[in-house]
Amino acid sequence: MGSLHVKAIFLLLAIAITPSTAWTVRIANRLSHKKVLFAHCKSGDDDLGPQYIKPRDEFKFSFRVNFFRTTLFWCNMSKDKKSHASLDVFWSFSNAGKHGGLDLSAWAVNEEALWIVRDDGIYLWMKAPGWPEDEPYVIETLFHRWEPKR
């Protein structure tokens, strides 16, 4: 076996045993009129089960991105009997194309994806571009509007 093969094997082993960054997704209920938010979140490997998030409360879960950087979590949410939303709440770089090129890992603050659920839709909190890491100024952007249930 040539030295190039040995180096390649060593590099792959080093990558494989290096722990990936731990991520947290938070879904905060900021609906008016003391509405309870329903959320059911899943990935290709995990079903987090139905969650009933009380007013002013939040649901959060943590995980590590897989070796191939293809980790994807999505949630189905409902604020009442008339409206719902289905959206990805975490994606790795490999899924950025599906989200207009947005690499969530580059915009998230402290390896955390924070989703704020309001009456008009679901907002994502992100770092402002070029802002220093030690001053995590965030911007809140409407990411997904509620859709009528059929």
Rank of each mutant, 00 (worst) to 15 (best):
A108H: 04
F93Y: 02
P50F: 02
S43N: 00
V25I: 09
R64E: 03
G100I: 13
A16T: 09
F63Q: 12
F67I: 15
W131Y: 04
K82C: 07
I27K: 03
N66M: 04
V65I: 12
R69G: 08
I116R: 02
T21H: 10
H99F: 12
D119R: 00
E112S: 14
N66T: 04
G44T: 11
H99D: 02
G49Y: 13
S43W: 01
H99T: 04
D134W: 14
R69S: 14
K42I: 10
S83W: 09
F93I: 11
D88I: 14
H5G: 13
T141N: 11
W131P: 02
S43G: 01
A8G: 00
P132L: 02
V65T: 15
G97Q: 00
P55Y: 09
T70L: 04
P50Q: 08
L142R: 10
P50K: 10
R56S: 13
A28C: 08
G100L: 09
K82V: 05
N29A: 13
G49P: 14
T21R: 12
F68N: 04
L102W: 03
L102M: 05
Q51G: 13
R150N: 01
V36P: 08
N76C: 03
L12S: 13
N66C: 04
K35I: 02
L124D: 00
G101R: 13
F68Y: 05
G49T: 07
D103G: 05
F61Y: 15
Y137C: 01
E133Q: 07
F67G: 00
L114E: 12
F143Q: 06
E112M: 13
D47M: 09
G130S: 04
S94C: 01
K127Y: 01
T70R: 10
D57W: 05
G97L: 07
D120T: 07
A14K: 00
S32G: 15
A22H: 06
A85R: 02
V138C: 06
F59E: 12
L102P: 02
T71M: 05
S86A: 09
W125K: 11
D88P: 14
R64G: 10
K149Q: 10
F61G: 12
A22G: 05
E147W: 01
A85M: 06
H40S: 14
S86V: 11
